[in-house]
Simulated assay, not measured.
Amino acid sequence: MQLRKVTAASAAVLALSLAATACGGDKKDDNGSSGGKKIAIGIKFDQPGLGQKTPQGYAGFDVDVATYVAKKLGYGSDQIEWKESKSADRETMLQRGDVQFIAATYSITPEREQKVDFAGPYLLAHQDVLLRADETAIKAPKDLNGKKLCSVSGSTSAQNLKAKLNLKTDLVTYPTYSACLSGLQSGAIDALTTDDSILAGYAAQAQFKGKFKLGNFKMTNENYGIGVKKGSDLKAKINTALESMVSDGSWAAAVKKNFGPADYKNEPAPKIGDVKS
Rank of each mutant, 00 (worst) to 15 (best):
residue 4 R to T: 15
residue 5 K to H: 15
residue 6 V to R: 15
residue 6 V to H: 12
residue 7 T to Y: 06
residue 17 S to D: 02
residue 19 A to Q: 07
residue 20 A to R: 08
residue 21 T to K: 15
residue 25 G to D: 15
residue 29 D to K: 04
residue 30 D to Y: 15
residue 30 D to A: 14
residue 31 N to T: 12
residue 33 S to I: 14
residue 35 G to L: 10
residue 35 G to I: 00
residue 37 K to V: 08
residue 40 A to N: 15
residue 42 G to P: 01
residue 42 G to V: 04
residue 45 F to L: 03
residue 46 D to V: 04
residue 46 D to E: 14
residue 47 Q to V: 15
residue 47 Q to P: 02
residue 50 L to V: 10
residue 52 Q to D: 01
residue 55 P to I: 08
residue 55 P to V: 10
residue 55 P to C: 12
residue 56 Q to M: 13
residue 56 Q to E: 15
residue 59 A to H: 10
residue 63 V to N: 10
residue 68 Y to E: 14
residue 72 K to R: 14
residue 79 Q to E: 11
residue 81 E to Q: 11
residue 88 A to Y: 13
residue 89 D to A: 08
residue 89 D to N: 10
residue 90 R to L: 05
residue 90 R to A: 00
residue 91 E to P: 08
residue 93 M to F: 06
residue 93 M to R: 05
residue 93 M to I: 03
residue 99 V to T: 05
residue 100 Q to R: 04
residue 100 Q to D: 04
residue 103 A to E: 08
residue 103 A to G: 09
residue 104 A to E: 04
residue 106 Y to A: 11
residue 106 Y to K: 10
residue 107 S to W: 02
residue 110 P to I: 06
residue 110 P to F: 03
residue 111 E to V: 08
residue 111 E to L: 04
residue 112 R to Q: 02
residue 115 K to R: 12
residue 117 D to H: 07
residue 124 L to Y: 06
residue 126 H to S: 12
residue 126 H to A: 12
residue 129 V to D: 03
residue 130 L to Y: 01
residue 131 L to W: 07
residue 137 A to I: 02
residue 138 I to Q: 03
residue 140 A to G: 09
residue 142 K to W: 04
residue 143 D to C: 12
residue 150 C to T: 05
residue 150 C to Y: 04
residue 152 V to I: 10
residue 156 T to K: 14
residue 158 A to W: 12
residue 160 N to S: 13
residue 162 K to R: 05
residue 169 T to V: 15
residue 171 L to F: 06
residue 173 T to E: 14
residue 174 Y to H: 03
residue 174 Y to D: 07
residue 175 P to T: 09
residue 177 Y to S: 12
residue 177 Y to P: 00
residue 180 C to F: 06
residue 181 L to F: 09
residue 186 S to E: 11
residue 187 G to M: 05
residue 188 A to W: 06
residue 188 A to M: 07
residue 188 A to P: 00
residue 189 I to D: 03
residue 190 D to E: 11
residue 190 D to P: 01
residue 191 A to E: 01
residue 196 D to N: 14
residue 200 A to V: 12
residue 202 Y to C: 03
residue 203 A to S: 13
residue 205 Q to H: 10
residue 209 K to H: 13
residue 209 K to P: 01
residue 213 K to V: 08
residue 216 N to R: 07
residue 219 M to Y: 01
residue 221 N to W: 10
residue 222 E to G: 02
residue 223 N to S: 13
residue 224 Y to K: 01
residue 227 G to P: 00
residue 229 K to F: 07
residue 233 D to H: 11
residue 233 D to G: 09
residue 236 A to Q: 14
residue 237 K to R: 15
residue 237 K to D: 12
residue 239 N to T: 14
residue 239 N to F: 08
residue 240 T to F: 04
residue 240 T to I: 10
residue 241 A to C: 04
residue 242 L to V: 13
residue 246 V to H: 12
residue 247 S to T: 14
residue 248 D to F: 09
residue 249 G to Y: 13
residue 249 G to V: 06
residue 250 S to W: 02
residue 252 A to C: 06
residue 252 A to E: 13
residue 255 V to E: 09
residue 259 F to I: 05
residue 263 D to L: 04
residue 269 A to T: 00
residue 270 P to W: 10
residue 271 K to V: 02
residue 271 K to W: 00
residue 272 I to W: 02
residue 275 V to C: 07
residue 276 K to D: 02
residue 276 K to I: 08
residue 277 S to Q: 13
